[in-house]
Design a protein around this nucleic acid. Structure first.
Lengths: 122, 122
DNA sequence: AACACATATGAATTATTGTTCATATGTTCT
DNA sequence: AGAACATATGAACAATAATTCATATGTGTT
């Protein structure tokens, strides 16, 4: 076990286990990748969006229906659907005036299920 | 297919597919559960915390090591570790002055992996 | 007991983000 | 073309949260 101590730039304390830190550093994904991952989870990290995702897992729905279901304004829902779409979590199709939203892929359900499993253990 | 239209409280538009909405409403988990789920994902939704989780997946580490690895202050890391611990995503053990943090359960990895899978498809 | 060190924490500041309000876009129907 | 409706969007406001700074706590060492 190494106990060398090295000052780093912005850390006000010292590295205690340099070897471990170096080993872990090598295995870390690119900064950018982890940033993107955090951005993805940020999308799941809002109760309005989670409720939308959960609802769409049951059935495709139009914006008004979702707004009514969640008792929120059409505008608020529309803004959130945009966020979900940018994250490629939902897709939509148009049928006349009405736009139907649905889940875009299976990861959504898997991620939610894992999250639920964690909560239920509490 | 039902096309009844009903005004709802706070929605500025009308329910278009009442049956669908009612069916979905029945299947929705309790409001509180989905709130908790969102709170969980919120914890994953920060790049500092995601990097900490990823690092701890490689090896248990002390606070200084993590601070050094991520080039951040000890204080910032400590604050985030508290958030992670409250969410039961990490645990710690003391060895003298040093406190080692590690992942608390397997969901962390599974959730991260699903998230990564989603990103990589993009 | 005094000191050094690893970590934790409270308050302040800055940054980010969700919702609202007003309005714009795009579609259907007459 | 104009009216009605479903949805989208930009700006403003309010709420939340991440980091910093100063300092406190807890442990080991001399």
């Amino acid at each position: 076990m190494s106990n060398k101590r090295v000052f780093s730039d912005r850390c006000d304390c010292e590295v205690i286990h340099e070897e471990v830190v170096n080993k872990v550093r090598e295995k870390m994904p690119k900064e950018e990748t982890l940033y993107d991952l955090a951005e993805l989870f940020k999308v799941f990290g809002d109760s309005t969006r989670i409720r939308i995702l959960w609802a769409l897992d049951e059935s495709e729905m139009c914006v008004c229906d979702i707004a009514s279901l969640l008792n929120m304004t059409q505008s608020a829902i529309s803004h959130q659907l945009r966020v979900l779409k940018q994250a490629k979590l939902v897709k939509n199709r148009r049928e006349g005036k009405v736009i139907y939203y649905s889940l875009d892929d299976d990861h959504v359900r898997l991620i939610c299920d894992q999250g639920m499993a964690h909560i239920k253990e509490g």
